[in-house]
Design a protein around this nucleic acid. Sequence first.
DNA 1: GTGAAAGCGCTAACAC
DNA 2: GTGTTAGCGCTTTCAC
Lengths: 336, 336
Amino acid sequence: MNRRATIKDIAEQAGVSAKTVSRVMNDEPYVRDDIRERVKRVAAALDYHPNRNAQGLISSRTFLIGLTYERPSPSYVVDLQRGALERLAGERYRLVVLPFADAREDPAGLVALLRSAMVDGALLAPPSCDIPEVLDALDNSGIRYARITPGTMLERGSCALLDERAAGRAIAEHLVQLGHRRFGVILGHPGHAATSARLAGYRDAFAAAGIAPDDIRIERGDFTFHSGEAAAHRLLARTDRPTAILAQNDDMGAAALSVARALGLAVPDAVSIAGFDDADIARLCWPQLTTVEQPVAAIAADATDRLLKQLEGGELAAAITHPHRVIVRGSTGPAA
Amino acid sequence: MNRRATIKDIAEQAGVSAKTVSRVMNDEPYVRDDIRERVKRVAAALDYHPNRNAQGLISSRTFLIGLTYERPSPSYVVDLQRGALERLAGERYRLVVLPFADAREDPAGLVALLRSAMVDGALLAPPSCDIPEVLDALDNSGIRYARITPGTMLERGSCALLDERAAGRAIAEHLVQLGHRRFGVILGHPGHAATSARLAGYRDAFAAAGIAPDDIRIERGDFTFHSGEAAAHRLLARTDRPTAILAQNDDMGAAALSVARALGLAVPDAVSIAGFDDADIARLCWPQLTTVEQPVAAIAADATDRLLKQLEGGELAAAITHPHRVIVRGSTGPAA
DNA sequence: GTGAAAGCGCTAACAC
DNA sequence: GTGTTAGCGCTTTCAC
């Protein structure tokens, strides 16, 4: 096992000074092209990788970015990571994963986790991106952060946004246009800002269509399949059951699908069901789930980009609202 | 936000040398108790935290562990991460995620990624854990590693094992016992050792039951839902179609389920379908999928434990073979 | 027991 | 354009 090459090794072999090697490695100007080439060749031959401890010691940085989230669905987590890693490719920052059980209950614990992980910056997914104590502590500790689809305090930090309310309105309008007038809603986890925003969007669509509040049954869920099953049971086991169900994510939508099947209700003939997120499961269940696509990986990449800009000393860029898209599949159809 | 205190600050305030502070911080002997106390008090007052970059620069360690894998299903990735993080809780090591596109095609690229990330150790999931060039390069570079369910070269490195062949045999035996005699097999990605091991297990069961090779149709897949759909079509669209299908993971099993439904074949009355892995989707599809459970998180935790032991200078422990378990659900039934 | 000096690998500041 | 010097925060070596 041979020790890693250092700039000194390269300098010797290339017949230049260490500083020149450093210049080449950091793409700084003021190096002759032929020397630049030679140094690069030697570095490649020696399989040189810069020592981030040494770089960090000078700049007092760790080149570590932490991604925090609370056990949401696997495909959401993987999309988040994929987007962040895409943006990080070729950068010297590495992604540390830091799932956390319940940031709302223990905001200090989350910040302590980030501090002990010694990250330069954090990517905050919902719901921790909406917890003021977390943002306050981060501001104080000098850990930069970018917020992924926050629902509140949009002026704080740098945010990659989604118009959850408009997305909720869009999917509800799809069902209204199919002639539905009696709705069931399965809410997401109450701690997530998206839960109330999506509901507000549904209500926008209902109000515009003149649908009475009495014709809207709202059941609580928490984004899990299991909670969706229970909620769907409460909605579908009644005689005046809704003709359409709006579930706030696809896991719960798929759960509603399976409850309908168990109750002998044909989908979409007897009841239409729509989800949210366009997770893998939306395409894997049957009938496939009508849903709203959120470009999660692109959003994570955008947030990562914002974080990098801050870490490199740039200004906070104005937030971007990423587009959503209703995807109509087999689980929704005309009202009976 | 004022800069972090260093041992020099503490040394000055405590009226000792930097080295003495260092001794106290590392619980080294040869420091008078009263000085030790004084230094500790000053350190606490200054909210001192050692600079990991400086420590790492000397010890050439980073306290970073890299987890490598190739875009398998999200639930597998999340289980891997969960297991690794469970073992890492309370340790000073952090988990860096390093997905890699195709380690078999570019083994050097994977090792370069690990080196540039400066991890102390790597957790290698399939298929990279079975690529000799990767292991060779890691051995040379001084990056420790633990292998997650390898299928070959089991004597190399430290391994968390699974008996894929026995698991394959077990699920196939379940179908044989239900009276099935004509089988379809949907293989996983050809680059994964599990693909051939599971197939060998199926064949063990078939041979023991005296089933002729002509009654076994084998189709290639690559672990994706899409590949499973295509393979299931080829199996089920023929007149002498199998009465049972063995898919090498649950995504492809779910795909076979949806193809059967599209073709008007009742499951399990017309055709039985079994998956592999017990991923989330096995419980979310309908009928729920009979499958083989692999304790992925526990395996990842075991591999992490092995890696930590190596990093702390311990010996390689003997490999453990983790148990599998056939889970019978609604997708398999007696042969017609 | 304790401290001074050297150096880990790299880069900022400055000289040439 | 290029090299020299100094130093980031810490630990190792060795003198006292």
